[in-house]
Design a protein around this nucleic acid. Structure first.
Ligand SMILES: [Mn+2]
Ligand SMILES: [Mn+2]
Ligand SMILES: [Mn+2]
Ligand SMILES: [Mn+2]
Lengths: 217, 217
DNA sequence: AAATATTTTTAGGTATATCTAAAAATAATG
DNA sequence: CATTATTTTTAGATATACCTAAAAATATTT
């Protein structure tokens, strides 16, 4: 049985591994968890002892298969609950993340799997993020980050890799939601901002925004 | 913001107050929470300091209005989740209590109230226990404990005041569920056991069972 | 390759929620 | 009403998950 803290560390280490495709270092984890590096070191030792990851002093950590399985189970719960909140309880996509941060720690396989069935085994959550099935498998559709697009290219917005309510509310305000068709009109070399076109509008967005939007061509 | 521990203490103190209609003493709480009397004393001091209850050394405690409100909010969440699990996720009534013990600590008024609406504002949970509404009000239907019934009396089983899975599984095995009609055939003075009759059967149950079944005449 | 900067770990401390054992208060009994 | 039994509180420990500050290891510059 893992504590809520341990689960959160495992989850964040997993997402950092995915993001950087490499071993994860202490300071990165500290920033993500919003804690101090010394606290991270303590926890890494503990998780290594529990054989969820390999840890070498000064060299960072890497989840082993057992740790990866734990991470996927928490991510599965998080995204199932987000889906539940939107589909069944009429939450909007910018209201679900904080509550899912709590719900992801509820421990009951039966609950998770029945919830999955109740939702008709969804494959993506309200942010377009893939939901692992009960075996930890999920379909990896190759989505491309908007900042990789060239002028003139078009795509469909299918996933947002930032669950914060401020960011999602910003997207709402600009009528950007999953399924929106986007065309790149202009790219600014100086600050990597872009002018994009949707059904309704044409407007400029900063690199900070383009970095978090993922599309299909 | 209260910790999970603090919430559990408040909840159990409330239910003991209801059960014994009096101030609650340290040892009773210790038994309910499955902890030591010394731990209870520590917590009572803390809860008194937070002004959720009145505490006098050696005299026991009593929830004040603020504490009572907290208790009712947790009980509301517990019973709404139990209802959700049975009505929407196909859990049986003996499988819900442990999961609800976790879910009752999720903190989001929006979630609680939307769940309530999703379930069509249920007034009782799968065990016949009343569900407080968002203002903490619930209808108090006068149910009578089976052990108060006389020989020959009939009633309808409407509430069970024991959520443990072993007890509920015992009821399942004997076809006793909410709505079952029961007639008292025999009462044994020696051990307060009873022989009861249902549609299907006639059999003896111990005082331990009669104490936990509540009926309407 | 020194010197400097950055990252990471260690050492030691705090708050919460437990525990055991002993002391103090209250209740029950002869 | 004094003795005994029970309940409750206090004193002092432990484990978890944090923290700050200093030391050690590693990385970057000059
Ligand atoms: Mn999320
Ligand atoms: Mn999401
Ligand atoms: Mn229950
Ligand atoms: Mn119940």
């Amino acid at each position: 049985m893992l504590s809520k803290s341990e689960e959160n560390y495992i989850k964040e280490i997993y997402s950092l591994e995915q993001k950087f495709q490499s071993d994860v270092n202490t300071n990165l984890i500290a920033k993500k968890i919003e804690t101090k590096a010394s606290s991270v070191t303590d926890m890494l030792k503990k998780l290594a002892k529990k054989e969820l990851l390999t840890y070498q002093k000064y060299k960072g950590v890497k989840l082993n298969p057992k740790g990866t399985k734990v991470a996927l189970s928490i991510i599965r719960k998080h995204r199932l609950w987000e889906t539940f909140l939107v589909k069944k309880l009429n939450f909007s996509w910018d209201e679900v993340h904080e509550v899912a941060e709590q719900l992801e720690h509820i421990q009951s396989d039966k609950l998770t799997n029945h919830l999955d069935a109740f939702l008709d085994f969804p494959t993506v959550d309200p942010h377009g993020e893939p939901i692992p099935n009960k075996h930890g498998n999920f379909k990896t559709t190759k989505t491309i980050c908007l900042n990789q697009f060239q002028i003139g290219e078009k795509g469909v917005f299918v996933e947002v890799k930032n669950d914060s309510d401020t960011f999602l509310k910003f997207l709402n305000k600009n009528n950007l939601s999953i399924g929106t068709k986007i065309k790149v009109i202009e790219k600014e070399d100086f600050d990597n901002s872009m002018v994009i076109e949707t059904n309704k509008d044409q407007f400029r967005i900063s690199e900070n925004v383009t970095k978090n939007l993922y599309l299909k061509r």
